[in-house]
């Protein structure tokens, strides 16, 4: 029998590393933001997995249910999702402004434009 107990956490680690890699390796600012989102989602998944109790139901008291999942980490993640949305929104707004000023959202091209400015 395969032990599935840690399956969620492997997914968390995989997503986290994927997200970090995308942030580091991609020069396109939109792709960076996507990477950042994947990274944040992995932590959300981590919290949600942590609160799950095997065989537990949603924590609503009702006859016939004895085991409940822990709702607290799930509730905390509502806040984290809001933070993630706000971060993405702000990042996208900045990218729009960058595109307007520099005409590109590729990091290496932006850096080249800035280096040219410094030289002149």
């Amino acid at each position: 029998m395969i032990e599935w107990g840690l399956y969620n956490y492997w997914v968390v680690i995989f997503l986290m590393m994927t997200g970090l890699y995308v942030v580091i390796a991609r020069g396109n600012l939109i792709k960076k933001i996507i990477g950042l989102n994947i990274f944040q989602v992995s932590v959300i998944m981590f919290y949600v997995s942590m609160g799950k109790v095997r065989g537990g139901t949603a924590p609503i008291e009702a006859a016939g249910f004895e085991v409940y999942s822990n709702p607290l980490p799930h509730v905390l993640m509502l806040t984290a999702i809001v933070v993630g949305v706000a971060t993405s929104a702000l990042a996208l707004a900045l990218v729009v402004r960058i595109k307007e000023t520099y005409g590109t959202i590729e990091e290496d091209e932006i850096r080249r434009i800035e280096a040219d400015e410094d030289a002149s």
Binding site: K32, T87, A91, L94, V95, R97, I98, I110, E114
Partner: peptide
């Protein structure tokens, strides 16, 4: 315009 790139670097 550098403020924009500085801000996005800070954000990431």
């Amino acid at each position: 315009p550098r403020a924009l790139t500085a801000a996005i670097q800070y954000l990431v």
